[in-house]
């Protein structure tokens, strides 16, 4: 089970701005194994989203290399190797929920019958069965975000990249979606990269937590979780959970001077 899926070597990305160069990422080295749930946590400006976008070939690194499934990120994107979930649901308002999930399938050329089968399937997975004919703006924020996850699951990508997908939701909804996400991960055995700025969320979900710090964006600490893969919300009261959360907080504090 230790096959490397994503591998970054000395990865750097520098943006040229009017105030001079900004080192969004500097010398990042990280391997992500198949079936891992890896969270990226850090203050804003630490490059966690930029790193995720590099994996998705939405951002071009200026130094080092990154491979996804042994290919360059661009090749992996053209092979549709991953599903990406953004901060906002980003659903197309002129398409129904079903139509939105069908969108990537249409682009990738699945036939009609296969499309219908897959839509029904993923709607079941995110517990949205029966909402296929609704329009996005008729659903709550939490349901919209679930639909956008369904959209990322609809095609056969074994990697799921999620950029603060629950950041805009209230805590009650977020807890519920976190639990659902874990179940989904267990059932689909996908590799997940997950950006968040919430310590409890990172600890609760992940097998590995990557703590990042800004200026320049770099990895401050990588924490292997000792929690069992199969977990429920109750685990957040356990001593083990609190210890890991404490380590994450220490890592954040060490890498960040609060200036």
């Amino acid at each position: 089970m230790n096959e490397t899926v994503i591998s970054a070597k000395n990865l750097s990305l520098t943006f040229q701005t009017n105030d001079g160069p900004v080192h969004a990422l500097k010398d990042i080295n990280l391997d992500i194994n198949k079936g891992d749930f890896v969270s990226f946590i850090g203050p804003s400006g630490c490059g966690k989203t930029t790193f995720l976008r590099c994996m998705a070939d939405l951002e071009a690194p200026t130094g080092g290399s990154i491979t996804v499934n042994g290919m360059s990120a661009a090749e992996a994107r053209m092979k549709r190797a991953y599903g990406y979930v953004f901060q906002a649901a980003g659903l197309y308002p002129w398409r129904t929920i079903g139509g939105n999930i069908r969108l990537p399938l249409e682009i990738m050329g699945y036939d009609k019958a296969e499309q219908a089968k897959r839509v029904a399937n993923v709607l079941e997975l995110v517990e949205l069965a029966g909402f296929e004919k609704k329009f996005p703006w008729q659903l709550s924020g939490g349901m919209q975000q679930r639909a956008s996850i369904a959209r990322a699951l609809a095609f056969d990508a074994d990697i799921l990249l999620m950029d603060e997908p629950f950041g805009a939701l209230d805590e009650i909804v977020r807890d519920h979606l976190n639990e659902q996400l874990l179940k989904l991960w267990a059932r689909t055995e996908k590799t997940i990269g997950f950006v968040t700025h919430s310590i409890p969320e990172a600890v609760f979900l992940s097998t590995r937590i990557v703590v990042m710090s800004p200026r320049p964006g770099r990895i401050a600490d990588v924490i292997e979780s000792t929690l069992p893969r199969d977990r429920t919300l109750d685990i957040r009261e356990s001593q083990e959970f609190i210890d890991i959360a404490h380590r994450v907080r220490e890592g954040l504090r060490a890498g960040h001077a609060y200036d």
Binding site: R77, Y82, G90
Partner: peptide, 21 residues
Amino acid sequence: DAIQTDLMNTYGASYWQSLFK
């Protein structure tokens, strides 16, 4: 919007697919 455009990129959509969809 930017998210919708990025999404099309993650699907590796062609120019015409992006235009029509």
